[in-house]
Structures are given as C-alpha cells and as structure tokens.
Nucleic acid binder design. Structure first.
Lengths: 63, 63
DNA sequence: CACTTAAGTCAAGTTTCATTGACATAATGA
DNA sequence: TCATTATGTCAATGAAACTTGACTTAAGTG
C-alpha cells in the first residue's frame, strides 16, 4: 500500500507531530506510515479518512 | 468497528472456508472478523472490498 | 445411526502495528 | 552562534492481527 498522507498533511501546513496529535498516535507512527514502513490498522485508517474528509480509498492505494 | 461480512458472504452462499480461500487467509481469521473479535488489517480490508466490489466504508463501520 | 460440513472457539506461536525514549541531521531564527 | 523545530531512524517493548492444529456443537444427509 502507498498513501498520500504526506501531501495531504503538507497542504494543511501540519507537522508530523500536529497530525499525530489529531490522530492520537505517536509521531513515529505517522512517520512510519508516511515513509511506507508499515500500513495503519483499519481503525486508524478510518480516523485518517475522517480527519481529511475523504474516503480511505482516496488516501490509500494498493501497490 | 462492525462489519457486514457475514451477510455479504451468506448472500453469495459461501462458507467461511470459501471466503477465507478467496481472501487467502485462514478460516479462523474470517470467523474472528465476522464475530467481531478483531478488525482486519488495512491490506486485508482492501482485498475484502475488492472481492465484494464495494468500498471499505460500505462494509466496515465505526461503532 | 454414522458421516460430513459448517461454525465457533481455544491455545500457542509468528508477524505486523504502535509505543516510548533516544540520537542524528538539516533548516530557521534570535 | 546557539536554540529550536521538523524529520528520519533505531532499539526495545507491548498489543493486535494472523497462523496452524485441535476440539466441540449443531445441522444436514446417506
């Protein structure tokens, strides 16, 4: 899976820490997802989609 | 999270084993997801959505 | 009745996701 | 220059997802 998290975050002028706080996860988790080291859990993917007001499918794509 | 997996599967007349085979997971995993013991990983959620030709959001809902 | 299939569950093990704490690097600003 | 912020990454730990193998129960079906 790859994702558009880094772009969406940058568009809003948020740091990884800002995003992590809004998602209630650690900064390292945001970084790991952005850099593709692992995929979020389904519940976290839902929180991300909710935060950006988008569908999961529009943020995460199969590779 | 709760999900409509059991219904979607039953509509197609598939056993848990049938579904597990199509998703390339164990029968116990399908059962655990259907009975709400845990949520699928994001990659597996995508495979499920693909298989049923639906969006993840139409199969899995936050509770 | 005996046999098979489906579903639910448990135990024990591996892999993946997520945590805290730490360190390095680059960029910016006082 | 010195301090701060942002990002990337590592190690160690814990929690969640997923595995195999086994057992039980219920519902057909010969």
């Amino acid at each position: 899976m790859n994702n558009r998290l880094k772009v969406l975050r940058a568009e809003r002028g948020w740091s990884q820490q800002d995003l992590a706080t809004r998602l209630e996860v650690s900064r390292q988790s945001v970084n790991a997802i952005e850099t593709g080291r692992y995929d979020p859990s389904l519940p976290l993917a839902f929180r991300i989609a909710d935060l950006f007001g988008m569908a999961i499918e529009d943020i995460f794509q199969r590779d």
